[in-house]
Structure formats: structure tokens, C-alpha cells
Design a protein around this nucleic acid. Sequence first.
DNA 1: GGGAAACATTGCCCTTTGTGCAATTTTTAT
DNA 2: ATAAAAATTGCACAAAGGGCAATGTTTCCC
Lengths: 202, 202
Amino acid sequence: MSDESLRLKKKNATRRALAEAAFDLAMERGLDDFVVEDIVSMAGYSRRTFANHFSCKEEAIASALTMNDFREHDEAHSLEGLTPLTTIEMYIKRSFTIDKLQRLHELILLSKSHPTLKLYVTGVLKETQDYARQGIKEGFGDAYSEEYYHLLIGAVFGALMPVLDGSINVHLPIGDTAQDQPDNEFQKYMEIVFSKLKEGFK
Amino acid sequence: MSDESLRLKKKNATRRALAEAAFDLAMERGLDDFVVEDIVSMAGYSRRTFANHFSCKEEAIASALTMNDFREHDEAHSLEGLTPLTTIEMYIKRSFTIDKLQRLHELILLSKSHPTLKLYVTGVLKETQDYARQGIKEGFGDAYSEEYYHLLIGAVFGALMPVLDGSINVHLPIGDTAQDQPDNEFQKYMEIVFSKLKEGFK
DNA sequence: GGGAAACATTGCCCTTTGTGCAATTTTTAT
DNA sequence: ATAAAAATTGCACAAAGGGCAATGTTTCCC
């Protein structure tokens, strides 16, 4: 099928299993009350294998948040009449699902007292930004310069980041009724972000 | 003089000495060919003291880049007729001096092959962003909401970040003649950033 | 299908790291 | 001058990181 089908799939499965175990342990016990050994015994791998995938606990925990499914939207919808900015708006509103935001929210809380974890969470969000930019670029190709894609997506994610990384307390839509309340605080914040970026800050 | 004059000054001196030693060693030998012991013996402190200030080599190295002098601009210049956006533009153009950009450039190069270092460099840039936001906020106070400051500064730094963290290769103004070439690539990129943010991306 | 190459996982081992604790030294406060 | 506060240090020990070689799987090619 794809380039490295089975082998890569297994490798990714290992990585995900380790990340999930690390995330769960962190949520149950907090960051300080477990060691790498606990993670690998829960996931059923060796300590050495953990080190092959991650450089530390924090990296494993944060990587449970990875969002790399931006490109999958491309095929489902035409980009007719859309600009890069309106397209990234659409991507983001679709990709930051309730469960992703839930998980992000938990990580943010834990990060408040653990600066190193916060760094890695930020790192994953930057990876997300890269995936988003690649998705946009594949949609619009050479219509815009490489620099323009970086600049635009950078501004979008930069403006959203204070919410995503917990710098400001915009209540994320979590819990049962979240999807039924279209104008929650996060939605409102996003509206302001995109409106400012469209109209300019003057 | 200030609240904690001598004591804090000495503590900061220790921190800076350790950071400088770490930075220099990293530049001379690369990241992998020295240990914390080398840093502290060069700076004249103990391993335990290093651990009191930094959690790892990378944090020490990156912290040699710290830029926290945004507020000092405030007093020298009136903010009359300026918006938050034009003010941050002014701050940034003044604060990213040749030598800061030189140091950043070296860190970026080393970060290419060392993801963990890159995280910490990004972390320092985010700290810089926080200082900048605080400076702006002190200038404009309650004229704008807390969220607005976060959103605006986030968009500005987010758009600049691809250059600052080396995601795109805009040639930074380094070397002897740097200050004499007002329209270097970095300047040009900044002009585009601020023009887009003023006018909007449509 | 079979054998070789590529790669993921593992165990072993040893250096380096991170950190709690208590002692010491230096700065601040009264 | 004395006491309180805080920075630096030494010690000890658990944990982490990573090189190396061995083993088990997957892929590739004939």
C-alpha cells in the first residue's frame, strides 16, 4: 500500500502505545510520581525502546496530542472561492475537535506547574502548525510564495496560541454539551482572530 | 536600590556566567561533546548550583539569548499617535539588534540537528514575546483588553517566528556591514509582516 | 518461495543527570 | 550585633540517555 506499510504502522503503533500510557499515567498520578519504567511496563515494551522513540517522559506525554490529519480534509472539499486564510480557518475549526481540546486542556493544567512539559506541548502545537501549513500549501500550490504560507499560518497560530497553550483562560468547549453551544468562548475568540486577520489591525 | 539589589544581582550574574559558558562550549564543540561538569568548571561553580538554575544543558545554552529589555524603551519615547501595532513594530526593530540576531543565528544552526535545543530556543523566544507584551500593555494600559494584547502580539511574533526559529531561510543581517544595509532580507520580511497585519490578509 | 538486506526491539553496561537533604557562606533586616 | 533569608555547595542515590551487539520482523529482489 503506502511506502512502508506494515513496518511503519507497527512502529507508529508502538509510539502511540507508549505515548498513551505516558499520558494516562501523567493524568492519574501527576508528572512526578512515575518513571519511564512504569510507562513501558504498562505498554508492554522495554525501557530501551522507549528511548528509541522519546528523549524523556514529557515528550511522550505531549506527543499523545499529535494532530496530523489536516491533509485529509483536502479531498472532501473543493477550495473554490476560498483564500488561504479562509481555508485555514475551515481546517482549524474542523480539526480542533472536542476531544482534542479536552486532551489539550488537561495537558495545559498539568503544564502550569511543569515548565518542561509546557515546552513539549508547545512543540507539538508547532508541529500541528507545520502540518496545517503543508495542507494549505498542497491546496494552493505556487499561487503563493513559501514565505507567504509561513507568514500567514504563523500569524494565525500565533494569535490562537495564547488560548491553546493556556496563557489566557478562554474556556475551552469541553464536556457533554460542548458541541451544542456554538458560541462558546473558544469559538468567539477564533471569530475575533480571523476577523482581525482579515480586516487588519490598522 | 531596587527591591533585592545585591543578592539578586549576584544570582543573575551566576546565571549569566553559566549560560555564557554553556553557550560558548556549545559553539566551540557542538552539543554532544561536553557535559555539565565542563560548564561549571569553566564558569567556576558547582554542578549542584547549575542544577539550581537550569534543568539541562539546552536550557542554559538557550538562555544566553534572553531578551528582556523591552520596557526600557518606554521612557525614552512618547507613545503619542502610535497604536499597539506600530508600537510593537518599533520595539521589535529596536530590540532585535545585530548581535542578538547573530547569536540567534548560531543557535538556529545548532538547533537544526538538535530538536531539544530547538525547543528551548523557541521557549526563550516565547519569553521574549511575553516581555514585549508586558511592555506594550504598560504603555497602553486599559485602552485594550488583555485578550487583545495577547492576540495582537501573538500574531506579530507568530508571523516573525518562521524567520526567528529558522523555519525559512531569510538571511539575517549578520557580519560587519549588516547595520549599513537597511534593506536586508530580514528588514524586508518584517515590512511585509507589519504591512499584512495592518492591512489584513483579506 | 527463499535468502539477504533493512529495520525495530531488546538487553547489557556505564556515564551523566536530577534532586532531596543538610551544611556552609553570603546578604538582608532589625 | 544578631537573627532571618537565601544562594551555593557536597553528598548520595535513583533515574535517565545512549553506544553496542544480539535477536526478531518486515521488506526487497531474484
